[in-house]
Simulated assay, not measured.
Amino acid sequence: MDVQDVPPVRALIDEACAASRDLPTPQRLVELDGLLRTQLGRLAPIVQRQADGLNRGTRDWWNRQRAVDATRNALREPCCDGSALLPAAMLVAELGRRLHELDGYVRDE
C-alpha cells in the first residue's frame, strides 16, 4: 500500500469504530487491522512516555497507563484474517477505540 493510500488517523478511527455496524469486506477488515496495529504501535510508546513522566498514581498517570495497558491487551489478539466477519469487525472496532484514546492523549501533548 502506498503511503498516499493511508487514511488520516481520524478517518481510520471512524471507519474502524463503525466496522461492527457496517461490516466491511473481509479484505478491508484485514487492511484496517494492519493499519490500526501500525498506528497503535506508533502511539502506544508516546503515551507510555507521557505516563512515565507523570507522578505515579495520579489521575493523569492512571488514565494514560490504563489506555496503554488496554492497547497492549487488544494487540495480543491475533490479527484478523477476515474469515469470520463479525468477530473480525469487533476486533477492528476495539482497535479503533484504542487508537481513538491514544490519539487523544498524543494530541493533548
Rank of each mutant, 00 (worst) to 15 (best):
M1T: 10
D2P: 05
D2C: 07
V3Q: 01
V3F: 02
Q4V: 12
P7G: 11
P7R: 06
R10K: 12
A11H: 12
L12W: 08
L12V: 09
I13N: 09
E15F: 02
A16D: 07
A16K: 05
C17T: 09
A19Q: 08
S20T: 06
D22T: 11
D22V: 12
L23F: 09
P24N: 09
L29Q: 06
V30M: 02
D33K: 04
L36V: 10
R37F: 10
Q39F: 06
Q39V: 12
Q39S: 13
G41L: 07
G41R: 02
R42L: 14
L43I: 06
L43T: 04
L43P: 01
A44I: 01
P45I: 04
I46H: 05
Q48I: 09
R49S: 15
G53P: 04
N55V: 08
N55T: 09
N55F: 08
R56D: 13
G57A: 00
W61N: 07
N63P: 03
N63M: 13
R64N: 04
R64P: 02
R66P: 02
A67K: 10
V68Q: 00
D69A: 15
T71H: 03
T71W: 04
T71D: 08
R72F: 05
R72G: 12
R72Y: 06
R72E: 13
R72Q: 11
N73Q: 15
A74Q: 12
L75D: 00
L75V: 02
E77N: 11
P78V: 09
P78I: 11
P78M: 06
G82D: 00
L85P: 10
L86W: 03
A89F: 01
V92K: 03
V92G: 09
L99K: 00
L99G: 00
L99M: 04
L99R: 00
H100L: 14
H100G: 11
D103R: 13
G104S: 14
R107L: 13
D108V: 11
